[in-house]
Design a protein around this nucleic acid. Structure first.
Lengths: 202, 202
DNA sequence: ACCTGAACACCGTTCAAGT
DNA sequence: ACCTGAACACCGTTCAAGT
């Protein structure tokens, strides 16, 4: 708040912002504490006034990335009010597209050993702790879909693992160029979603 | 072959072996060229006689890891001869279990930026280049399943993305403790596979 | 939960030199 | 496609000191 500090009013926020820029520019492996500090025009040890270690900085950058990701998902959901099935499938497509366009986010969010210790138990946690988190957004969409389909043979838990797993796996395989497909991946994904309504049908 | 070298008869193979041991012991981030060299009792620069740089060493370790992984998949396939549907679903379960039990392999194989440039185009490559590779094993299982089910509305390409994506995504979410489930994940996976026969049914 | 500069242990990589 | 040791640029982290 005060802008009469040694150098910055809000170094902590700037470190996070520059960290995300560095991720975009140099990829996950280029993300070093010293480079982020230099990008903020501050000494290499200054980040230690705001974060216990690199792990804490990376966790903060992750939180920012998750928030960006969540906005993409919510945008897709909001485009189809009152249609839980369409919401779920369009959100899945937004999910995949996001990571195909930002593959370094995948590395930051899902493979860094800078681990978020807390396992994301969104089902049993109070709303204020989980809202704004993409996985909670995903779970909400699954639950709306579950309620809208009274013939659904699967529990929310099961739809969650199925739907999230499918979308997540496809995102990773395509983003990492792991599969080689004849057709455009989005064409195939749309076909799969249409056939399965994004869930198994029996 | 000759064992009268400066130090080793087969340093290259030993570097790969020790690299994989180090991955198990210290995780993907602990995998350093210098540590691998030290584990082989050799100077820090000795690996450069066998690999252009760290990237090449990591690629060789990856190849070894993929071969171990492939053995697990083939074992599952071989347990159910003449039942392509069961082969596909049991292989999927073996796939998930393998990564849940060896999460550092996930990091090595799918999120390292030590990239295998060649995108795995297993559909159009000669057999001798692709055999022994887990993704080829997966593709083979998909194709056998496709041939066995004449009512299958999906192309092999589409089944591949669907089946591999689902299995891969679930493996990552569970191995990284990303989902919190009420029941055991294998119970849910088995139920999903039984319902969908590992593919969408229309 | 302010910021710096010197220092330490670790890393990948290069290069001249040695069996 | 042999192996080593010194050296360089980079990294995370600690610590005594300075606004």
């Amino acid at each position: 708040m005060s802008d009469n500090n040694y150098h910055h009013g809000d170094l902590k926020a700037e470190l996070i912002r520059e960290g995300l820029l560095l991720l975009d520019k140099e990829g996950y492996d280029g993300l070093s504490l010293r480079k982020v500090a230099k990008a903020c025009g501050v000494s290499q040890t200054a980040p230690y006034r705001h974060f216990k270690d690199k792990n804490e900085l990376v966790e903060a950058i992750k939180a920012e990335a998750l928030s960006n990701f969540n906005k993409h998902l919510e945008q897709a959901v909001d485009a189809y009010p009152d249609d839980p099935e369409k919401q779920l499938s369009e959100m899945g497509i937004a999910y995949i597209k996001f990571f195909v366009e930002n593959p370094e986010y995948l590395r930051l969010l899902f493979l860094s050993n800078y681990q978020n210790k807390s396992c994301a138990d969104f089902t049993n946690q109070p709303e204020h702790l989980t809202s704004g988190h993409p996985f909670k957004t995903y779970l909400n969409a699954v639950e709306r879909y579950y309620k809208s389909d009274t013939n659904q043979p699967l529990e929310p838990d099961e739809i969650m693992l199925y739907s999230w797993g499918l979308v997540h796996g496809i995102a990773i395989l395509v983003a990492n160029n792991e599969v080689k497909l004849q057709k455009d991946y989005l064409t195939i994904v749309r076909k799969l979603f249409e056939m399965g309504n994004n869930t198994i049908q029996s």
